[in-house]
Amino acid sequence: MSNGNHGGEAAQQRKGLMVFLALAVLTVVEYIVAVSLTSTPLLVTLLALAAGAKCWAITVYFMHVTRLWRGEEVH
């Protein structure tokens, strides 16, 4: 295996770590917001925004949804 391949893997793993950390932060924010807020409409709005952001990050970075319309696989 070439060094370039190792470098590519390391870069991808770093990207995955960044996405995971963002997801973890959003989850903690969700929890804190839920135990702090008393206004249900505001809570529902904030939780929906957080869930939407998490869904987008997982779909794009972990599930590689863009490969559906990309002509070639790139790892």
Partner: peptide, 25 residues
């Protein structure tokens, strides 16, 4: 890849189910 995508899908579902079941008021 296919199995891992399915696993992520299960996670995405929980991303919505967790606040729906646990965090609302």
């Amino acid at each position: 890849t296919a199995v891992v995508i399915y696993w992520h899908f299960v996670d995405v579902v929980w991303v919505f189910f967790y606040p729906t079941l646990y965090l609302l008021k």
